[in-house]
Design a protein around this nucleic acid. Structure first.
Length: 430
RNA sequence: GCGGUAGUGGUGAAGUGGUUAACACACCGGUUUGUGGAUCCGGCACGCGUGGGUUCGAUUCCCACCUACCGCCCCA
């Protein structure tokens, strides 16, 4: 009991890992259908990759980064999110080159790290599945990305989702709105909550996100970003809505929605769910949006990108609470019971032969009595039990028992070794 | 980083300032010795998160720390 895992980390144990595999495989198969291919980037990057991309005001950079100096005095950070590393790889490997299809589509699955207080569905090492598409401004791509996220949840059997969409417009829209919002809130500064007073200085848009009642009465009458969009920005957003409608996607427009990372513009969206396991009210399990300037910021061309990230810990909690069925696998086909030490070699040969024939097999390694071994076979839900004792050894046979029916027959060992699948099929069919 | 609740065996848990820490589940063994999912019997915490302190004596009282859970901040 002396050692315990670091705060905010978790062990995914055998059994649980099946669920993770299922979710990850579902994502891989689906995203490949959309022609997104997996990219694997390092778990750590130069600190600067994240500080430049996330923006100086984001909490992710200012207080949640796991960073350190390595032995070569390089300033390193464990990745707090996936986009920055993918953008870096896009630039470094010149994936914007003419030989690659545009948009360039990639997805990632893996751990992220943030130094924060653990809570339900929030760990210091947590996992995300995310996608990114570079090099196209098409609103159709925005909608495809949102649709893909929804298709993923649908395939997993998650229901009761709420899709919220907003736009942050382009640079000019955002700047104009920023100013308008500050102008509106400044006179009420003293009436705002303490947190929001701070937000007003650092990142005024965040005030819109406040849950404090004293803030919300101002938020209600605050100017809307939608009134400050340039023609281009408005046009983009209109098309997004139009395509969403064309796909029959149910969504709400939430002009107060903000995103945590500074690099977003134009379309942003969240997929939310109302589940008590994740806290009160609607919580976000998938967030994303369009970003421009990020590729350029990290030394590439002026390409835009769009993507989303799904928090896997939250998703796993959700699947559990919704009792979403995970397909079972790795059933035990055969348990081999050996009676007496002299059968030790034969039972070992037999389980190996059965495995080689493509079936799963197990045996006892604790020198336990037949009864105890049968108990194990039962507990492990073996379909069949093969028993070998002194007598069988001499007659070169084995008892073959169906655990479901209780029927037991004697078979030549040679048959078991030669064509196990034939025997398996014969007695499974009955 | 702030606030709240909690921490007893593999699990769920009861409990008390003082000889053997209840009960249940699980597990292991036995029930005439080579066969499961039932019954019965037996075994299973030298220690009650860690470290200090108070006390003749603490798992039980006090302090600190660690961890988990919830809320805030923020976010997936």
């Amino acid at each position: 009991m002396h050692y315990q895992r670091p705060k905010g980390t978790a062990d995914v144990l055998p059994g649980d890992s099946d669920k993770w595999h299922y979710v990850e495989e579902t994502a891989r198969l689906l995203f490949e259908d959309y022609q997104y291919h997996e990219i694997r980037t390092p778990l750590f990057e130069s600190f600067e990759i994240f500080s430049r991309s996330s923006g100086d005001t984001s909490d992710v950079v200012t207080k949640e980064m796991y960073d350190f100096h390595d032995k070569g005095d390089r300033h390193i950070a464990l990745r707090p999110e996936g986009t920055a590393g993918v953008v870096r790889a896009y630039v470094e490997n010149k994936l914007y080159g003419p030989e690659y299809a545009k948009p360039y589509k990639a997805f990632y699955i893996g751990p992220m790290f943030r130094y924060e207080r653990p809570q339900s569905g929030r760990q210091r090492q947590f996992h995300q599945i995310g996608v990114e598409a570079f090099g196209s401004d098409s609103p159709a791509l925005d909608v495809e990305v949102i649709s893909m996220a929804l298709a993923f949840f649908k395939q997993l059997g998650v229901s009761g989702l709420r899709v919220a969409v907003n736009t942050l417009g382009d640079k000019k829209s955002r700047d104009d709105y920023h100013q308008a919002l500050v102008d509106y809130l400044k006179p009420h500064f003293d009436e705002l909550s303490k947190d929001s007073q701070e937000r007003l200085e650092k990142n005024p848009l965040r005030v819109l996100d406040s849950k404090e009642p004293e803030d919300q009465k101002f938020v209600a009458d605050a100017p809307s970003i939608l009134d400050y969009l340039t023609d281009d920005a408005r046009n983009h957003f209109e098309q997004v809505k139009q395509f969403m409608d064309a796909l029959g996607i149910d969504y709400v427009i939430d002009p107060t929605m903000v995103r945590g990372l500074d690099y977003y513009n134009h379309t942003i969206f969240e997929v939310m769910v109302n589940s008590k396991v994740l806290g009160h009210g609607y919580t976000t399990i998938c967030g994303g949006g369009r970003y421009s300037g990020l590729v350029k910021e990290l030394g590439g061309p002026d390409d835009t990108g769009i993507g989303f990230a799904i928090g896997l810990e939250r998703l796993m909690l959700l699947l559990e609470s919704e009792k979403v069925a995970i397909p079972e696998k790795n059933k035990l086909d055969v348990y081999v019971v050996g009676i007496g030490d002299e059968t030790n070699a034969e039972t070992l040969k037999l389980v190996e032969a059965i495995r080689e024939a493509g079936f799963s097999a197990n045996r006892d390694y604790m020198n336990r009595k037949p009864k105890a071994q049968f108990k194990s076979a039962n507990k492990e839900a073996a379909s069949f039990v093969i028993t070998i004792g002194q007598a069988e050894l001499e007659s070169k046979t084995a008892h073959f028992k169906s655990m479901a029916s209780g029927e037991e027959v004697s078979l030549p060992l040679d048959d078991l070794y030669k064509d196990f699948s034939k025997i398996y099929d014969k007695y499974t069919g009955e």
